[in-house]
Structure formats: structure tokens, C-alpha cells
Design a protein around this nucleic acid. Structure first.
Length: 266
DNA sequence: CGCGAGACCTGATAGC
DNA sequence: TGCTATCAGGTCTCGC
């Protein structure tokens, strides 16, 4: 998403900003967001974890978190209206950038560079960066008794992993999601770290993982869905051992597992 | 302090 | 058909 945005909107000026729903804005008044954004050129698009930043100047950015169901779409003004539109940015080339989200769990507001920096400190390393090494993950696991699933979803440990990636990586590494992080042996941590990196690389190369709502900037679903090994495959055979995939709750999240391949004890 | 349950929303779908 | 229950890509807050 960030890469597509970079191609399509960097260098464009925002003629008009229209907040259609205020739910994702938190405390920022919609008029303030509109005024801060209108007339500004987008100088860069950056990402940290699940947060996107459209930079309007060196010291200010539009923060976007897509939550569970948020979609960013590049539209023409003549395109049919979307029911769950939250923000529409009219660009100087005649196109519009829309943020649509039917649940509204995302975030949308302008932020100062200092806040972006504070957010950066709050988040763990990028999973595809040098900071997310086997040593790092092993160290985090060793000093935590939380379920490994909760640890993987904790954005302060590693930034950007979600439920799909966690389930896929745990299956790949044959680790049960309800294992306590500090019971993993080094070989398991190594397998997990590798599986996470491979999943993300492949998913990005295939333009994302769509299981229901996700659309790319051009309204197209991602191509990674058909490569999922366990996620949302409950009842279907495990692609490794043939046992029916199970569905449990771990760390409060639905978790698809192979009850045979993924053991609850080391 | 870290952990885990519940809250926040709306919509789709399964089952009665 | 229409009702209820459950589940959903995430993250925050609060009580223990």
C-alpha cells in the first residue's frame, strides 16, 4: 500500500479534504484536519508498523491506520459514492484518495513530527529490518510468560504483524499459539522468525492478503489469499499431515491451528 | 509490571 | 422470512 501510494500521490497537491465521518478522528475536529491538509503537497509516504504517514511538510503528516477493515482507494470524482467513506482527498490531477472503513477501528488525524517519533519509540522493530533477528526474538520470548500468539501480535515487540501472519508463521514453525513464549526452544524461535519474514515477503510480492475486505489502492484484492496454509481453513486438511485444521481462541483471538503438527508442549 | 478479558463498532453469515 | 448468535485483518483500558 505504501509503495503504491508513493507512486501515485507523492508530489500531488491536495486541493480539498472532506471528512465524511468523524469516528476515526479521535479528539481532532474535522475542520482542523481539513484545514491542515487542504492546499498542501504530499512530499513523502512512509510507514511504521501498521501506520501510514502522508507527509505534508517536514514537521507534519496525515496519520492513517486502517484498523480491521479500512481501505485506501484511488478514485475518479465520477466513481459511485462509497457507503463507508471517512475521508476524501481531491488531488490536483483530478483524482481522489478515499479512506473507507465500515467498522471504523482505524485512526485518522494530522500529527506533528514529534508524535511520529514518539510512536516510533513505542513500536518494536520492523519485521523485515535488521532489528528483528533471531537473537532479538529469542530474548523477548525468554523474558515473557505471555502466550506466544499474544507476543507476536504485541506491536511493542515487533511492529506490523497481524492475526493472519501470526497463525501462518506459528503453523510453519509447528508452534502452538497457546504456548508460553518463555517455553520456546531456540530452534522454534528460529523457525518462527524465518516464517514471519518469508510470509511478509511473499504477501507483499503478491500485493497483500485478502480474505474478505482488503483492497489495494486500485480496488483489487491481494493475491496472497490462495497461498494461506492454515488461516481460515478450519475443517480442511492440514497441508502437512492431513489432520483437520482446528479453530481455537488464543490470546483472545481466533486462531487456526493443526492440532497434530502444533504441540502445546515443547 | 505484565497479563488477559472486555470494550469499541458495523456487517456478514450460520442456524433455528 | 426473520430473528439471534457468532465471528471478523486491531488496539486500548482496566482490574488482577
Amino acid at each position: 500500500m505504501r509503495r503504491d501510494l508513493e507512486v501515485e500521490v507523492v508530489g500531488r497537491r491536495i486541493r480539498r479534504a472532506r471528512v465524511a465521518q468523524t469516528r476515526m478522528l479521535g479528539r481532532q475536529p474535522s475542520e482542523e484536519l481539513e484545514q491542515r491538509v487542504q492546499g498542501r503537497a504530499i512530499s513523502a509516504v512512509t510507514r511504521r508498523g501498521k501506520y501510514l504517514f502522508l507527509w505534508l511538510a517536514a514537521s507534519e503528516a496525515l496519520l492513517i491506520h486502517r484498523g480491521m477493515t479500512g481501505n485506501l482507494l484511488l478514485r475518479a470524482p465520477s466513481d459511485p459514492p462509497e457507503r463507508h467513506l471517512h475521508l476524501a482527498l481531491s488531488l490536483d490531477d483530478g483524482r481522489e484518495l478515499w479512506l473507507c472503513d465500515h467498522r471504523g477501528f482505524g485512526e485518522l488525524r494530522t500529527v506533528a513530527a514529534a508524535e511520529v517519533e514518539a510512536l516510533d519509540h513505542r513500536l518494536g522493530p520492523e519485521p523485515l529490518g535488521d532489528g528483528f533477528s533471531v537473537d532479538y526474538l529469542a530474548g523477548q520470548c525468554a523474558r515473557r510468560s505471555a502466550l506466544i500468539k499474544a507476543l507476536l501480535l504485541n506491536q511493542g515487540i515487533v511492529a506490523g504483524l497481524g492475526n493472519i501472519c501470526a497463525d501462518e508463521a506459528l503453523w510453519e514453525a509447528r508452534v502452538h499459539p497457546a504456548r508460553r513464549a518463555n517455553t520456546l526452544v531456540l530452534g522454534e524461535v528460529k523457525a518462527l522468525q524465518g516464517a514471519i519474514v518469508r510470509f511478509l515477503d511473499a504477501s507483499i510480492a503478491r500485493r497483500g492478503t485478502t480474505f474478505s475486505d482488503y483492497k489495494d489502492l486500485y480496488g483489487q484484492p491481494g493475491g496472497n489469499s490462495s497461498y494461506l496454509q492454515v488461516f481460515h481453513r478450519a475443517g480442511q486438511p492440514c497441508l502437512r499431515c492431513g489432520a483437520p485444521i482446528g479453530f481455537i481462541k488464543a490470546a483472545g483471538r481466533g486462531s487456526s491451528i493443526c492440532p497434530l503438527c502444533q504441540h502445546e508442549v515443547a
